[in-house]
């Protein structure tokens, strides 16, 4: 009998610890499929963040390092600088990348470090139990903004992809979503491009992936998909913001 669908080699057979309806499993699979398809698994080194996906290394079947909170881009810089032959990626959430690790990601992107960042944005701190993140939407309720995010007090949510696309150096910056099948197909394409560019020796690439967190949003899985569609996508529009050879700054080119 012909096998037409199976677990990618770059994933292990470990049962997941992620909550029902969480997007991490899908995004893990997209990265793993990419490593398989491009034949990169045996020279890949992933860097796990602090956050729900700190345990990503339990699921990926490749070498991994576990970073200090927010410092994954510095780890990846160290690895790639001493071993340019390796394929290096960081996998980071919004608290990790856009709050405590903002300096590290901006400078790694600006130096054009030759690794790939998968940035999972679910607009909330997951591991610590649903606190306000830099990407928490205006009026969104979290445990540390129980009356909803007050932008007059704590500012507006940060659009990371646009911010990084405003830099001259990065090769590839895109925002995709993992909430509906056709978005997942587009996300897969973007992640594949990012790794392809790295394998070709181009500099820094980042794919921001909008993700659901039903547990901390206090929603069912299907309501969470609705909520992402209605609230996150209008504020965090999808598309490629920077592609190799494109010198224009922070303008959406085309939807995937």
């Amino acid at each position: 009998m012909e096998v037409i669908f199976k677990r990618p080699e770059a994933l292990t057979a470990t049962p997941t610890h992620y909550c029902p309806g969480c997007s991490h499993g899908i995004i893990h699979r997209l990265v793993a499929e990419t490593l398989d398809e491009l034949g990169l698994r045996e020279r890949a080194v992933g860097v796990a963040p602090v956050g729900c996906s700190v345990l990503a290394y339990n699921y990926f079947n490749c070498d991994f390092q576990e970073a200090a909170h927010g410092r994954a881009p510095a780890f990846a810089t160290g690895i790639k600088r001493v071993r340019p032959d390796l394929i290096v990626f960081t996998y980071q959430g919004d608290g990790d990348l856009a709050s405590i690790g903002m300096a590290e990601i901006v400078h790694a992107a600006n130096r054009g470090e030759k690794f790939t960042t998968i940035f999972v944005n679910n607009a909330v701190y997951g591991m610590t139990g649903g606190q306000m993140a830099p990407t928490t939407l205006s009026e969104q309720v979290t445990t540390t903004c129980p009356m909803g995010r007050d932008t007059s007090d704590v500012g507006h949510p940060i659009r990371v992809a646009e911010l990084l696309a405003s830099l001259e150096t990065p090769a590839y910056v895109a925002r995709v979503s993992a909430h509906r099948p056709h978005d997942i197909v587009a996300a897969r394409r973007a992640i594949r491009k990012a790794f392809q560019y790295q394998a070709e020796g181009l500099c820094f690439s980042l794919v921001e992936v909008l993700a659901t967190c039903p547990t901390n949003w206090g929603k069912t899985s299907s309501d969470a998909v609705e909520w992402l569609e209605k609230n996150m996508i209008p504020y965090f529009p999808l598309g490629e913001l920077k592609t190799p050879g494109d010198d224009s700054v922070a303008g959406l080119t085309e939807g995937l």
Partner: peptide, 11 residues
């Protein structure tokens, strides 16, 4: 933290 990454990669 770059030092960590590079040391863990064997340098």
């Amino acid at each position: 933290n770059m030092l960590f990454g590079a040391a863990a990669a064997g340098a």
